[in-house]
Amino acid sequence: MNIFRILGDVSHLLAMIILLVKIWRSKSCAGISGKSQVLFAIVFTSRYLDLFTNFFSIYNTVMKFVFLMCAYITVYLIYGKFRKTFDNENDSFRLEFLLIPVTGLSFLENQSFTPLEILWTFSIYLESVAILPQLFMISKTGEAETITTHYLFFLGLYHALYLANWIWRYQTENYYDQIAVVSGVVQTIFYCDFFYLYVTKVLKGKKLSLP
């Protein structure tokens, strides 16, 4: 475990907590893409099936459990408790455009053609595109609440820190996982545009709004 990896995990956890706190405090999930959150719940579910088959560490097990809980609670708040505040109109990204290619690719390009491994690969590919419905929603409405941008910032930071983690692991352990690295680079690229707006607008106290 290196510093990039632990900071990456903390950023990831912080992002999910920020989102939960935002929804809980405002009693509203306005501006949040329910579709992205459902995709993240699918990502964690299909990836963490190894909770039943492999044990790595207490840390690993606890974090996986916490991530799963956060994802499911978020989905419940959006589609259950606060569904009246959910902006269904603007959450119009077509999920089949993501799910069909991602499913196909996970069958074609994986490390081992076994159910658990295909599901793991599927989760990695899906995670790299799962934020697109959220980014699509922001581009459609042209604005995002500041707290939503903090959520996206920490989610993007997690991806960037994981890239540093992989470089570190490659240098020190000679370990690398091509599927994770390529997907990680792809998903980090999706955040670049957002990072630019975050630094130039949100950090200067302005609301994120697109012209």
């Binding site: 990896r5 995990d9 990831h12 990836r47 190894d50 088959t53 492999n54 790595f56 690993n60 974090m63 996986k64 991530f67 490390q111 081992s112 076994t114 491994e117 793991w120 994981y162 983690n165 370990y175 996982d177 994770a180």
Partner: peptide
């Protein structure tokens, strides 16, 4: 070569 499960990251 036998496949070894190495996915120790989150």
């Amino acid at each position: 070569r036998e496949f070894v499960y190495t996915h120790d990251e989150l």
